[in-house]
Design a protein around this nucleic acid. Structure first.
Lengths: 146, 146
DNA sequence: CGTAATGTAGAGTAAACTACTCAAGAAATC
DNA sequence: GATTTCTTGAGTAGTTTACTCTACATTACG
């Protein structure tokens, strides 16, 4: 139960794109340099995110990547689900030995389902735009002291 | 970001022990059979949980395992932390290429930390005793219809 | 039209982790 | 001292992680 580099790097890349939303395509090289991500690996993640409909990509000179939707419509939940998969595989399928007390089995299964829903609801509360606002607020309060 | 068999099996085993809290040592064979867990694997997990102070174990005939503390003092947070490790390694240490925009890096780092705390708080809300009560309520409401 | 700049697709890989099994040993009870 | 139970550590096949690399497709520009 941990966030892997996919979720970490992927979110950092989307955050980079969110800050430049509306400025046209951003190249993966630039994202990689700014955010400190291995560019080859990032390219893979970008493809995954494009296929999932999070970003649009354009080839050729002046090509690059951009958010497919406005930053306030992209939640952490969607990002992490795309990159990390669900908290538990939908139907676990751990059927090695038969469960002798099916009611206990069902109760724990339901607990996992409930937990997944609660965590996903929590993740859905934060959007890419929230992250941008946080950064703005932060740099803003620093400004006062310069 | 998923619950592995360690967390799943481990919780099922502890739930089994919680339902028999105060009845003395319970053998791993019995737990394994009741909950449908491969016994060799379960033995490993039980050792991990004993070393973490979740259970006490006794060898010899009539030996077995028992919760080290009352079920209402053992939370999902503790169980999953012991068995699955933290949501993110404490200091990620992904320092492959240097982060060109350190403020972005810090912001995402803090987001992960905040998220971890929020999820752990959520997990801390449920104890083993809560699971036992749920089961009791459930079988109770079934009783009315028999 | 050609060439350079970009993303795309898929293969490859070392290391770690998962989900187990197994055998030898230690401790407690009878 | 035999048996029951947990303990320790090794082993292993398969999957995932965290990448790299090569070849290819597409587009823009001159």
């Amino acid at each position: 139960m941990r966030i892997s580099s996919k979720g970490d790097y992927g979110l950092r890349a989307l955050f980079d794109l969110a800050q430049r939303y509306g400025e046209g395509p951003i190249q993966s090289d630039d994202i990689a340099t700014r955010q400190g991500i291995p560019v080859n690996y990032l390219n893979q993640l970008l493809i995954t995110m494009r296929r999932a409909g999070l970003i649009d990509s354009l080839r050729g000179p002046q090509g690059g990547h951009m958010l497919a939707r406005a930053p306030e419509t992209i939640t952490l939940r969607e990002v992490l689900t795309v990159l990390e998969g669900p908290l538990l595989p939908d139907e676990p399928g751990r059927e090695t030995s038969p469960p002798a007390i099916p009611e206990d089995h069902a109760l724990i299964d339901e607990l996992w389902a409930e937990l997944r829903e609660r965590i996903e609801r929590l993740l859905a509360e934060t959007t890419l735009d929230d992250l941008c606002q946080r950064k703005r607020q932060r740099s803003g309060s620093v400004m006062y002291y310069i």
